[in-house]
Design a binder for these strands. Structure first.
Lengths: 351, 351
DNA sequence: TTGTATGCGTTATCAC
DNA sequence: GTGATAACGCATACAA
């Protein structure tokens, strides 16, 4: 059985004191050349791994993390983040972690800036945020980084080398997946790629999914074609029905966000039975339409998993010095009415 | 900021010594009624959570875990378990965990019994095993449990209340998912449900998937029908082609295990273009046929994730006293050629 | 029945 | 430069 070496062992082997070993390990200087060489050699020989538990014992600081995300009271998509935060809190309840959640209005830059400022004032050890507004996010991230606050982001990526970790999905792939699914269930025909909501210019996800979908059409021998269109939520019914009348060859609709249920509703209402529908996210309303076969597939972006992993990465970095990848690209889950429950069920049956 | 209470704090608050508090917490007895009441009250008041890090510091034992699984040199399905074990070893490299892997021949009871005996001789703290042979597994589990060895299982479940934790998938759901996918891509027609391999009686997974598939047909308004058939790997070509000739109305094939590529091979060879194929697991060979559209969908059982979670559960139980559910039912992933890479890519881009 | 002393491995302080 | 030593929070052996 592999013996576990401690600093004490190394000190004895090198014929020096624990203090000297510590100075070598942490490169604190004030060590004679000979001692440095001897200790370094032994460290390598035995492949010394510090005991992280003991290391953290001393560190009786309460780590504070701020979560800065869109208000989940205003958009159900973010609701699962609440659960994600909750489950992390539970998981690490035995440790000294403090998580503050700040919610901003995802369509309102001022709200974002205001909450960002609150985060700055809280002076946390780390921040996990959704960078909804690219330019403003960059400013905030730089500001936080300049105060030695570790910053991670999730959901959508923005280029910034100060970011500790990004968790999300490859959205171009996501669009390709939708195309492939239509390819399988339709065989041929036109698919409408829709954005529903305000201000689609800020929704980079929409452009990437759109791009992925078209990429698939171009790169494979599919008989599919596509048409891209944006709608506001308010006038969706009139505008969409009008649009469909103008394009009677549309056989499928790909909704690029969680508002899929809004289209499903109209399909039901206007009895557009032959329209196939694929969209995003396991909101209650979407699930209803998935179960009654109005929606054929939902692509699961798993915001809960994303925030959970983002937080876990930060915590394990602080608590255990665990290495964290720059990017975590999560699997893109294809959900239909049958495997749905395997994703939504609670794992925790303690009996 | 929430203050963090230690045993020392509680001792002071209760006007007793740390030793007394310790005795109350661990119910060791030898405490006066008054002290017991006082300390208990304070513990509840402040919602005391012991510092698990400090608790384990003392415990300089090397935890040993035995992994008992089918030989992955003989069946590629189990190959990903190797990676799973490797990644757990890396993840916990800073801790004192010793993992021994023992491989048995999955079709040979004697090999299983022999390796089980080796496990017993190793006297580990815990065992994570695949209970391939139900009766023999039960005997072994009881034997291990009687020696206070914690036993977890994964892949397939067997009823035994001594089992610490089971990780796997709901296989009836799994069969339903396959049916739903055929329903979407075929609309109607007959699907052959196949088992390929030796000794299908021991393959409980086959019966559950078969059952799930039929359940879907009965419970929904689908126009699908099914026919169930078992083949040996050896004579598959002759037997399957013969079978298909006898059933010219078969439009889809559902292979209930990872041998899906064997059917794909025949579809290619015999140019059975119109046959839709759905099967299991991301073996190299299956992936090839998924990418060239011979296989429409693969259902991902994720043995790597299963063994990873099984091991993590055990380790975190020992190291941190973390609560573990009796069962972890993992999501059932639907894989097509486009979302495949999001599952297979390595997450660890440290840059 | 209770309190005190010691040790786990690491780190920080301080005297030499 | 170096080596003792105390401290982190908990568990426990032992003294009272």
């Amino acid at each position: 059985m592999r013996k576990k070496y401690t600093i004490k062992d190394i000190a004895e082997l090198a014929g020096v004191s624990k203090g000297t070993v510590d100075r070598v390990i942490h490169k604190r200087g004030k060590v004679s050349e000979k001692a440095f060489v001897d200790v370094t050699r032994i460290l390598e020989e035995i492949d010394y791994k510090p005991n992280l538990i003991a290391r953290n014992l001393k560190n009786n600081k309460v780590y504070s993390i701020c979560v800065l995300i869109p208000d989940y009271h205003l958009d159900d998509y973010w609701l699962s983040c609440k659960e994600g935060i909750q489950s992390v809190k539970q998981e690490f309840s035995a440790f000294d972690i403090e998580i503050n959640t700040l919610l901003y209005h995802s369509k309102d830059v001022n709200s974002f800036l205001q909450k960002s400022n609150e985060v700055l004032n809280l002076k946390p050890d780390a921040v996990l945020m959704v960078p909804s507004f690219q330019k403003e996010s960059e400013t905030i991230i730089n500001l936080l980084a300049s105060q030695d606050i570790v910053v991670s982001i999730f959901n959508n990526n923005i280029p910034n080398n100060k970011i500790f970790n990004f968790v999300g999905q490859d959205l171009i792939k996501s669009g390709r997946i939708a195309a492939k699914l239509f390819d399988l269930i339709l065989g041929n025909g036109k698919v409408a790629i829709l954005y529903i909501g305000a201000n689609f210019k800020n929704a980079t996800y929409f452009h990437e999914k759109d791009q992925g979908f078209k990429e698939y059409i171009q790169q494979t021998e599919t008989a599919l074609s596509s048409v891209t269109k944006t709608f506001s939520s308010e006038n969706l019914e009139i505008e969409l029905i009008d649009f469909l009348n103008q394009h009677p060859d549309i056989k499928g609709i790909f909704v690029t966000n969680s508002k899929t249920y809004m289209v499903a509703e109209l399909i039901k209402k206007h009895k557009l039975k032959d329209l196939k529908l694929i969209g995003y996210d396991l909101l209650e309303e979407n699930i209803t339409y998935l179960k009654n076969n109005t929606i054929q597939f939902l692509i699961h972006q798993n915001a809960k998993h994303q925030i959970h992993l983002g937080l876990t990465n930060l915590i394990e970095h602080f608590m255990f010095g665990k290495k964290t990848p720059k990017r975590n690209l999560l699997p893109i889950n294809i959900i239909n009415s049958e495997n749905l429950s395997s994703y939504t069920q609670k794992e925790t049956i303690y009996e």
